[in-house]
């Protein structure tokens, strides 16, 4: 008997362990989903940078959703041969812009960069981002408390996130 119950008991223990790990994992989710509202203050938005999907990252950074707008102009290449260096720029004709953020949908973590635009600074930013593969680049402009977005697909020949 002992030769049979031994492995079985171990198996049960392992299963129980796995179940509790899964439960802890679930328990963490509500915390992760809580909006950090980092864009509103000066703290580095750690939580938003940890989110995997673009929707979760936008929620963690701003605590609200964006609507597409043709007043946000996203300038990115059709094809990026090197995903490690993709030049991306945003300009907008919107008034009262307070921040501009860049998301790459299928990167391991969607949020790439977030810029605070104080009064007197022109709402226009150029930077260079890494892209893991062909996916959408989303720019979010926060203006007068609302979020506006522009999206463009960039084809990536060689990914820039390693592996």
């Amino acid at each position: 008997m002992t030769t049979i119950t031994g492995p079985l008991a171990t198996r049960r223990l392992i299963l129980q362990g796995a179940a509790s790990v899964a439960l802890i994992g679930l328990g963490n989710l509500p915390f992760a989903a809580q909006p950090a509202r980092a864009a509103a203050n000066d703290k580095y938005p750690e939580e938003a940078f940890k989110q995997k999907s673009e929707a979760d990252a936008i929620k963690a950074l701003y605590g609200k959703t964006a609507e597409p707008s043709d007043k946000v102009k996203l300038d990115a290449p059709e094809i990026a041969e090197n995903g490690g260096v993709v030049p991306i720029a945003v300009t907008t004709t919107l008034d009262k812009v307070t921040s501009i953020s860049f998301f790459v949908a299928e990167n391991p973590n969607a949020l790439a960069a977030s810029y605070k635009i104080p009064d007197g600074t022109v709402p226009s930013v150029s930077n260079r981002l890494k892209m893991a593969k062909t996916t959408n680049v989303v720019a979010i402009v926060e203006a007068d408390g609302k979020l506006y977005s522009a999206t463009k697909e960039v084809k990536v020949t060689v990914g820039g996130c390693g592996g």
Binding site: N107, N109, Y115, L129
Partner: peptide, 8 residues
């Protein structure tokens, strides 16, 4: 600028 590791 608040940057993550996806900046080149």
């Amino acid at each position: 600028a608040d940057w993550g590791p996806a900046v080149s």
